[in-house]
């Protein structure tokens, strides 16, 4: 499945966080989105799931509905003080099948158990989530993504504050998802991870700095351009005229 951004602009209080971004994510492969803080990386993911509305342009999901996207937000705001079990958390990944009111099928339970085993937490099914460490909990959230069985997987800084061992295990899952022809898009900061596990990279600083094979994107020159770009921010910025110019050109 292909995800295409066409002339996408998303702004907060009129200031664009993502500015006239166009391009296509490689279908069935893994793309990393990198760039400095404030470059609009999370904004692109949030627009894909429909949580933010574009000011201009659009996200084309290739006919896939929102229910077929698995999205792991940055520092998920999950209330872990509630006495919910690990297995129940993973089982919510089967929402597409059971919805708000339907029963979980036998295969949903099985999928949840299998996913927990795959992330190395098979023994933890009945524990409350409050008893887990941050790394273990991230494993639980990856297990839920496996149960969601989605063709498009969005990860927003999934390895921040996660130890090396856990990161390594979870990156193996990302590799497995690529082998299963799923499209994975992850916001990351560790270039070594990106080079090793992500064949494609989008380098962003509100606008596309470079987008393509990772080795060609992550060059010193590109990275410098990216960090210079984000520094521009003016309270009194003029209104953007890019769309006006495009409209004039289109007229006969």
């Amino acid at each position: 499945m292909s995800v295409r951004l066409s002339n996408l602009t998303v702004s907060y209080r009129r200031h664009p966080a993502v500015h006239h971004v166009s391009g296509e994510f490689a279908a069935g492969q893994a793309t990393a989105i990198v760039g400095p803080n404030g470059a609009g990386k999370s904004t692109i993911l949030k627009t894909m799931i429909g949580a933010l509305r574009p000011d201009a342009g659009r996200v084309e999901l290739g006919g896939v509905s929102r229910q077929h996207i698995a999205y792991l937000p940055q520092a998920a705001q999950i209330d872990r003080s509630l006495p919910v079990s690990v297995l129940d958390t993973v089982l919510t990944g089967a929402w597409r099948h059971m919805g708000a009111f339907g029963a979980a099928r036998a295969q949903d339970w099985q999928a949840a158990q299998d996913a927990l085993a795959a992330v190395g937490l098979g023994e933890f099914a009945q524990r409350p989530v409050s008893a887990l460490s941050a790394g273990q909990f991230q494993r639980v959230l990856f297990a839920r993504i496996m149960v969601q069985d989605a063709p498009l997987i969005l990860l927003d800084e999934p390895f921040t504050a996660i130890d090396a061992r856990t990161t390594h295990d979870l990156l193996a899952l990302v590799r497995r998802w690529q082998a299963e022809q799923r499209t994975v898009i992850a916001v990351l900061h560790d270039f070594a991870q990106v080079r090793e596990y992500f064949p494609h990279t989008l380098l962003l600083s509100r606008e596309v700095v470079a987008w393509g094979p990772t080795a060609e994107v992550l060059t010193e020159a590109n990275l410098q351009r990216a960090s210079a770009n984000v520094a521009h921010w003016h309270e009194q910025a003029p209104v953007c005229r890019v769309d006006d110019a495009a409209a004039q050109e289109a007229q006969p």
């Binding site: 509905s65 929102r66 229910q67 996207i69 958390t89 929402w95 708000a100 009111f101």
Partner: peptide
């Protein structure tokens, strides 16, 4: 009837939103 979405909306509202369910209605 609304036990599951209501509980999930307390536990993990972002997830409920990401699967397209309307947390606000519950």
């Amino acid at each position: 009837v609304i036990y599951r979405p209501l509980l999930l909306e307390s536990y993990d509202p972002a997830f409920l939103q990401s699967v397209g369910a309307s947390g606000g209605a519950y």
